[in-house]
Design a binder for these strands. Structure first.
Length: 561
DNA sequence: ATTCGCTGCCAC
DNA sequence: AAACGTGGCAGCGAAT
């Protein structure tokens, strides 16, 4: 059963059951306590309803704030975005108001701009701005139900409606998890973080000044050049190296590594530590960690491939050194699960290459490929990654030839995606997420026959898009495997015994999931993870020989995973 | 004072 | 070893 929800922004709202034929109206409920009403529904029926609402990131946080969790939802904005993308209309307004306007031939309102929340706790506003884009003369609940029904029809009309429906469901489940993970937060020990920083940079400097170790390195770098140089300034560094008779094309670490000058080792150390200090130093700690939790703002579907992005806090780039600070609460533990070699396994599954699929039945796929490379696993790995990323330079070419002979269908699959991209067509993931169309500029440059002003540029642009679409079919499918997996984990955790505390999903990063669970529930959590990976494989690919083994670690500290 | 493109490095 | 996909973010430096 589906129930449409319109929150009034003051804790109440209206609910209406959606009939099986999607258009008939169930009873309307007007409630002053929306969280209570939703909670009653969740527990009253054996099979929890799927909540239909405009946007999870608007409707769900207040419910989670009332200690409520729902099992399932249909996020109209996210699904609209997926459907628009499918039809080559990536990026068009996706709010329920915009969808309703398109349905009625009215002027389509732009999506409200998302405000960047600076820090872990944005200042509370007296009045939340009304982010609804539905015209004031239109009943919001009515419009929501109409748009939802239309989305259901549009999904049913697709070539693979079942797959797309799964995509819509897991995208929505992801939106629930994103709100919940923001609410629960990653357990974070400021004292441990501070100790890591102090150990590498020296004691915390007073207000904004440079830590001792960085200041020392800067002085020694300047001394090595015989002139004052700001090591943060690529421009100054280029000049300083040129003046020293050691001209460099850039100041990237891997370039500098081979330069013979006494400043180089100091610079490399400086870059490493300076990066730590500016990206995840004390300022970061002050801004992003509150009451022992780091709460990233996840942006579901924020990446074209369907991977998530985050807003602020750099949650998806936490350096290895800083993971020391992620420590489970006393009597709790972290359970970190990572889908090993996910992308090549995905390629094996979607391409239908039986030889590669057989190799992907092993725990170490690359080791199984090594045979074709005279037993060299590393070369097998580089070759396969090159095939998925579109690398042609370096020593990739012979590796690709070897792979093509052993796994022709897999190579054909990514090559075909690249060709589609180069020729301006759309490509799709397994479940139907679709890449953006090329820009008008790209079309003019690449496809316009009578404007070949610059053939080189056109060819380069075409190849660039080819690499993008080549990678898209794999990365986007990997992202949806991860979503199916996460949705299954979320459901599995909700069914666990909570006598010792409620197991929580606390961190998600592309192909990796971290749970925070009572120590006594650790074994159950691991079982949930393994079952979820199996469920994801079956739901997406049915009876495939491809396996998706999980690396699972039960640890007190994330750095030990 | 703010904005924006660029460089460079972190994660997957 | 080399420059190949998706991103976020800090700092610089020039333009506004």
């Amino acid at each position: 059963m589906r129930v449409a929800v319109d929150a009034d922004g003051e804790g109440g709202g209206r609910l209406r059951e959606i009939g099986a034929d999607r258009d008939s109206d169930g009873a309307l409920w007007r409630v002053s306590d929306l969280a209570g009403a939703v909670s009653d529904y969740e527990h009253a029926i054996p099979d929890a309803p799927r909540w239909v609402w405009a946007a999870t990131d608007e409707v769900y946080p207040p419910l989670v704030g009332h200690a409520l969790r729902v099992a399932r939802c249909h996020d109209v904005a996210l699904v609209e975005s997926l459907l628009l993308g499918y039809h080559g209309r990536f990026g068009e307004a996706r709010s329920v108001g915009a969808a309703w306007a398109r349905l009625h031939g009215r002027e389509v309102p732009p999506d409200p701009v998302i405000r960047g929340t600076e820090g872990a706790e944005p200042p509370p506003a007296l009045f939340e701005p009304d982010r609804s884009t539905i015209p004031p003369d239109v009943d919001r609940l009515r419009a929501l139900i109409e748009v939802h029904a239309d989305q259901q029809r549009r999904i049913a009309a697709l070539p693979h409606p079942g797959r797309f429906a799964l995509l819509a469901a897991v995208e929505s489940a992801g939106a629930l998890a994103a709100v919940e993970m923001h609410h629960d937060g990653v357990p974070w020990r400021p004292d441990v973080h501070d100790a890591v920083l102090t150990g590498l940079l020296g004691p915390r400097p007073p207000h904004g000044s440079r830590p001792r170790v960085l200041a020392d390195l800067e002085a020694r770098i300047s001394a090595a050049f015989g002139r004052p140089v700001n090591p943060d300034s690529p421009g100054q560094l280029l000049k300083a190296f040129a003046a020293a008779g050691r001209s460099v094309p850039s100041t990237r670490s891997w370039v500098l590594r081979d330069v013979d000058h006494p400043a180089v080792p100091l610079l490399l150390r400086y870059k490493e530590l300076s990066r730590l200090h500016s990206a995840h130093g004390w300022a970061w700690l002050d801004t992003w960690v509150r009451r022992g939790r780091f709460r990233p703002d996840y942006v579901v579907g924020g990446v074209v491939s369907g991977r998530w992005a985050t807003r602020g806090g750099g949650a998806l780039q936490i350096p290895k050194a800083v993971r020391r600070a992620v420590v489970a609460d006393p009597d709790w533990t972290l359970v970190a699960a990572d889908a090993g070699q996910l992308e090549p396994r995905i390629l094996a599954a979607v391409s239908g290459d039986t030889a590669l699929a057989a190799a992907a039945g092993a725990d170490d796929l690359y080791a199984r490929l090594a045979g074709a490379f005279h037993g060299d696993r590393q070369r097998a790995k580089i070759g396969l990654l090159a095939a998925m990323y579109g690398q042609t330079g370096g020593d990739a070419a012979p590796l690709l030839e070897t792979l093509r002979r052993a796994y022709p269908r897999a190579l054909d699959h990514v090559d075909a995606a690249a060709r589609d991209g180069e020729e301006g067509r759309l490509v799709r993931s397994w479940l139907g997420r679709t890449c953006p169309p090329p820009s008008p500029m790209w079309r003019r440059l690449v496809l316009d026959a009578d404007a070949p002003a610059d053939g080189d540029t056109a060819a380069r642009q075409a190849r660039e898009r080819g690499r993008f679409t080549r990678n898209f079919v794999v990365q986007a499918t990997a992202a949806e495997w991860a979503l199916v997996f996460m949705a299954a984990v979320r459901r599995g955790l909700a069914a666990l015994d909570t006598a010792h505390g409620v197991p929580r999903l606390v961190f998600f990063q592309h192909d990796e999931l971290v749970l925070h669970v009572p120590r006594r529930s650790a074994d159950d959590a691991v079982a949930v993870l393994r079952a979820a990976a199996e469920e994801a494989r079956t739901l997406m690919f049915g009876a495939t020989p491809v396996r998706f083994p999980l690396d699972v670690a039960v640890v007190d500290c994330y750095a030990d995973a």
